[in-house]
Design a protein around this nucleic acid. Sequence first.
DNA 1: AGCCATTTTTGGAACGTTCCAATAGAATGT
DNA 2: ACATTCTATTGGAACGTTCCAAAAATGGCT
Lengths: 348, 348
Amino acid sequence: MVGARSAARPVTIIDIAREAGVSKSTVSLVLKMSPLVKDETRQRVTAAMDALGYVYNRGAASLRRARSDIVGMVINDLANPFFAELAIGIERALQNSGVIPFIANTAESVVRQAEVVRSMREHGAAGLILCPALDTDAAEIERLGSHLPVVLAIRRIIGARASLVVSDNVAGAARATEHLINLGHRDIAFLGGIGHMVVFQDRVAGFTRAMNQAGLAVQPSLIGESMPTKDGGFNAMSRLLSVDRRPTAVVCFNDVVAIGAMLAIARYGLAAGRDIAIVGFDDTTEARHVSPALTTVSVDTGGLGERAAQILLRQINEGERRRDTYTGEARLVVRESCGARLGRRIAS
Amino acid sequence: MVGARSAARPVTIIDIAREAGVSKSTVSLVLKMSPLVKDETRQRVTAAMDALGYVYNRGAASLRRARSDIVGMVINDLANPFFAELAIGIERALQNSGVIPFIANTAESVVRQAEVVRSMREHGAAGLILCPALDTDAAEIERLGSHLPVVLAIRRIIGARASLVVSDNVAGAARATEHLINLGHRDIAFLGGIGHMVVFQDRVAGFTRAMNQAGLAVQPSLIGESMPTKDGGFNAMSRLLSVDRRPTAVVCFNDVVAIGAMLAIARYGLAAGRDIAIVGFDDTTEARHVSPALTTVSVDTGGLGERAAQILLRQINEGERRRDTYTGEARLVVRESCGARLGRRIAS
DNA sequence: AGCCATTTTTGGAACGTTCCAATAGAATGT
DNA sequence: ACATTCTATTGGAACGTTCCAAAAATGGCT
């Protein structure tokens, strides 16, 4: 009696019809809440459903209706808390929309990405939210977009015409840089990220803009690329510290790079926020918990995810062909790592 | 020409058959890599597929075959990095199994949990990995398990017969406690978690066992419940500090509680690891980054996820009715927050 | 009672695949 | 030339639903 799992032919709409003494069409109408069926009939039908333990077969339904209620969520690096928060935001926004998300982690592999995208199409996904892996080909996105609604999130892809949800990287980086300049810093470095990432280019552009507006030059030696990971930040910062005239402040590509950099600073016997100012980017939950607490640029990660989900849903439901772009505001969150809270100037 | 999305009837197996000059049955055989078809035919068919841009309809296939390649992943709190890591482990293990996971976050709501489980059944999920929400009813799990394979992860549910993947909470807590005892502590508290959580009970049991084995009594006043969150840890620790004879060491329910507790300690003008020893549980990535670095019990979170996925797959593929239980080892990771690294004894 | 309008119900075809039993074609042995 | 064994291929039914056009039931009005 425990686990009648294997045997039992599943209960179908036809079984319900027989039990309730109506036709399968009527049952179908009840299922879709049609106002056409008489109340008494509806009750008989729902009673039969409970009695037999009916479970709706959405697969069969979407086969017939030629559209499904599945969407795909393709994330380049789920282990990164920033993208995890994004995924949660997406999931939350999808929650009451009658749509259910597939999830896949591509781990920055375009090969894997192609695989999962294919799999999602095979499963009939009605749309896709995609945080593209590094070096994703614009043409591929273009082609994908001609088959189903696609919303690109976080990472813009130059040349790909698709809806887009990103944070305002240029303004955010500029704001962070201005803050450091206002604190008196003149020798400011930009640390982390790799050159062909569009996000990197945008953030460097914001950094450069702020520096130039303050009449400060940006020496190429003060822009240090690295993998956008904690180790990357650690190594890049270590390099930076060994140079004779080291910067007094550092704008980091993102929070994990910043955290790596702070580790390097500590290892060097210095204190972030006292001897050298650090700001991050993204405001992941870690930024708050690290010590000293990280000054960073908040991009409302969850909100971006929700926005991406909304745009996707609209495109699915209204068959919109239009290309939406949402740029989330980037707000500076001042904590301790920039030294502002110490009330004293690091800058010499 | 951009986006022939709306119009185009999708390409089916029948279109391919016509194009390649064979029957749909033959195309189907090619699709399932049957050795029955002649090589030359196979090539003609695959060529036709490329030419027409065919995409396999798995929905239709699973309707006919009466089994699907979808599994559900139901997580009680995705915003908690511990469960996020678990989810990633599951995803990773599923990656090359030809199965694709739905994901849902229940946010500890049994109502929401019932909804998503239902939705997953409606989508024909072949199995479920479930991190049950608080207060999940054993009978419900039991019933669910009679319909499809279910693997419970992290949280045991008393009275529910289902496969289970958990960490060794009793041994882990005991090990952490023993470590503190060996450092000379005698007044040790257990902090955080709520009484009716099985995980809480197990960890308290381990704590108690270690204390008793060392001939130490466990005063009820030294077991402080709280929500298993950072705020919960903060508040509970604050209460504990205001008592006249405060403990010299604290075993925390998990890492986020421990981090909250450390915040409270700092707020009190004391230093974790110097004035009071703290150990956490779970070894989330945050534990490493917090300062002082958190001594904690590592449970190989990703590994637990992978194990859960493996067990589920086996049950799906081999139709196993058997109830597997995997208990992951709990290893103590000594960092700084317990004071051991300072080489000096806190205990009076 | 008969007619019309309205409300409710219905049978069959269709969605894209797989399965099965049956067939056709090729190769072998006599 | 014919039966026999393989090897390849095939048409039709089936999976559980929705859609459509049409039929049946109901109610109101003469």
